[in-house]
């Protein structure tokens, strides 16, 4: 029963509501990552980056960090969207509107997921457009970019839902993002190539799943990668399948949703 998709209108409504929600607070959801990315591009990409010798990779430092910033905000936007939406739903108890509806558990997850995917992709597109003010840019592998954007937003939208179910207060809600996700994204090569690290740290970085996602976005944008893109694609797909299944399972058992 949990695998049924029988109510497409219901799923679409939930997806529309999620998108409506983040647009209605665009000053908190859409514009801040664009502003912070523009500052990163100016300070690190232009002011500092012009003094960094990156010629061995065939890119300027600015061109190197733009995909990293896109990946970082894909991750945080997707996570924040589903985690805040579901947690506020639990907090205000209007999650009951969904739980009472004839939506299968997979449909509930898909509907909520759609908001995280849409917000992540919109922010990512915005950052790319902002980057065009600083440097001419093209997307070398657009289909690969769509693939990695989709995988990343699915993974972190599901992670956001799991975080929202686990959290008992707003402090716990932001804990995963602050102490786990953002540090792993930064250590995954947003601002630096892994090859610049000491050999031991390079090995540790390969156990960081976010490294493969950042690398996948960078390959899609610039054709530059320090790990095989197939590995990035497989790791991302595997993680997406695992967290999606886990999230649907939590909805099925009603973890902190049903008394």
């Amino acid at each position: 029963m949990i695998h049924q998709v029988t109510n497409p209108i219901g799923v679409m409504a939930l997806a529309k509501r999620e998108i409506h929600r983040f647009f209605s607070v665009a000053n908190q959801t859409i514009f801040p990552p664009l502003v912070s990315s523009a500052l990163f591009m100016y300070i690190f990409g232009i002011a500092v980056g012009s003094r960094v010798n990156f010629s061995a990779m065939g890119l300027t430092y600015l061109q190197f960090i733009i995909p990293g910033l896109m990946a970082m905000h894909l991750i945080s936007s997707a996570y924040e969207n589903t985690s805040s939406s579901l947690f506020i739903g639990r907090w205000h108890n209007h999650i009951q509107e969904i739980l009472l509806a004839p939506l299968s558990y997979i449909e509930m997850v898909l509907g909520l997921l759609a908001g995280g995917v849409a917000r992540g992709m919109l922010v990512c597109l915005g950052i790319w457009l902002v980057s065009l003010f600083f440097t001419p840019g093209s997307i070398i592998h657009p289909l690969a970019l769509i693939y990695f954007m989709l995988m990343i937003t699915v993974i972190f939208s599901c992670a956001g839902m799991m975080g929202a179910l686990w959290a008992e207060d707003f402090g716990m809600l932001s804990m995963w993002n602050t102490y786990v996700i953002i540090p792993l994204a930064l250590l995954g090569g947003v601002f630096h190539p892994i090859s610049l690290l000491l050999p031991g740290l390079q090995i540790i970085s390969h156990f960081n799943p976010l490294y493969y996602m950042v690398s996948g976005i960078r390959y899609s944008m610039t054709n530059v990668t320090d790990t095989p893109v197939a590995t990035c694609a497989i790791v991302s797909l595997g993680m997406a399948a695992a967290v999606f299944t886990a999230t649907v399972y939590l909805f099925k058992i009603g973890y902190k949703l049903r008394t």
Binding site: M12, V25, G89, E97, L103
Partner: peptide, 19 residues
């Protein structure tokens, strides 16, 4: 227990569509 982001009209329309 209503969604704080929606008007009451939107609340009802979404609720109907969930069904």
């Amino acid at each position: 227990n209503f969604d704080p982001f929606l008007s009451i009209y939107q609340l009802l329309v979404y609720q109907a569509e969930y069904f």
